[in-house]
Structure formats: C-alpha cells, structure tokens
Amino acid sequence: MHQYIFDNYTKNDKSSLIPIMQEVQSVYGYLPEKVMKEVSGYVGLPLSRIYGVATFYNMFRLAPLGENIIKVCRGTACHVKNSANLLFAIENTLGIKAGETTKDRKFTIELVNCIGACSIAPVITVNDDYHGRITTKDIPSIIKKYSGKQKAAGIEKAEEAGTV
C-alpha cells in the first residue's frame, strides 16, 4: 500500500527507519498504526522498536494534529524575552494547553526547543511562517490570520470573554 514510499529504501535496511517514518508523517501528518505495521515488515524491525523510536523523537506524532501548527520557541533567548507569557497568551486564546489540539482541529500548540532564530526572539512559527519580536498583544491577530473564515471555538470564546 505504501510501496511508493518504501521504493526509495532498501528492504530490511534498519537505518532507513527514521527517514521512512519522516516520509509517512509528511504524507499523513502523523504515524498511523496501520502504516507502522507495514513499515515494521519492510524494515524488519519489531513494532515495539518502531513505537520506541516514534515516542523518542520530538517530531513524531501518533495522532493527527490540527490544520495549523503553532510552535512556540522555548530557547534560552526566547525564554529571557518572556516566551512563557506568549505561550500563556496563546493557550488562553485557543483554550488549549501546549501539546493539545483545538476541538475543531484548527490549531495545535507545540513547544520547540530552539528554532535557531534567537536574534529575533521571542519567536513563534505558525506552519512555515516565522513571527519574530512579538508580544502577547500580537497573538490574537496572528491567530486570527490563520483561523480562516470559520473561527476556532477558542477564539469565539475568547471574543466573548473580551480577550481579543
């Protein structure tokens, strides 16, 4: 079923596990268990090992994420520039905690160790866009920009509560 992914890798080459998982995730947005069973057979590794690898690295997801992924940088430079407050504001606006996805599956908040854009700290990224040197006041407008026509449930609530 996923032969087109496997074709780029030698069968039973254990070192191809992580690249294959990365490709699967880029297709599905996460690592579906069914596909991982196929991967297990192709690379010749037990499923437990694949689960172990999937839960070891930050990038792998076992469940689908929201449409928009907000990554809050928690690097040192961002930390000293109060990225914790940014996170708090994003969490409040969306009504979810870091690592969670909004009920309408619009947004997922993730923490990232350091995006390496320390010179413009504090930084968040939404999907592939960087937003540097921002303050909590910028959060509502950034989120609005990505929420599309349909408003995220969290935002509506936030609007009601007057936080936007």
Partner: peptide, 20 residues
C-alpha cells in the same frame, strides 16, 4: 522477539509493548 522496548524518554521512559 522484540515484544517490548523502551518508549518515551527521560523521566517518562517506560518499557512497554507496541502502542502501550
């Protein structure tokens, strides 16, 4: 057999079965 392996990491590490 490979029925169990380490999963998660750090303080959350656990020896467990696939998908726990």
């Amino acid at each position: 057999i490979g029925a169990i392996d380490f999963a998660n990491r750090g303080f959350q590490s656990i020896v467990t079965t696939p998908y726990n």
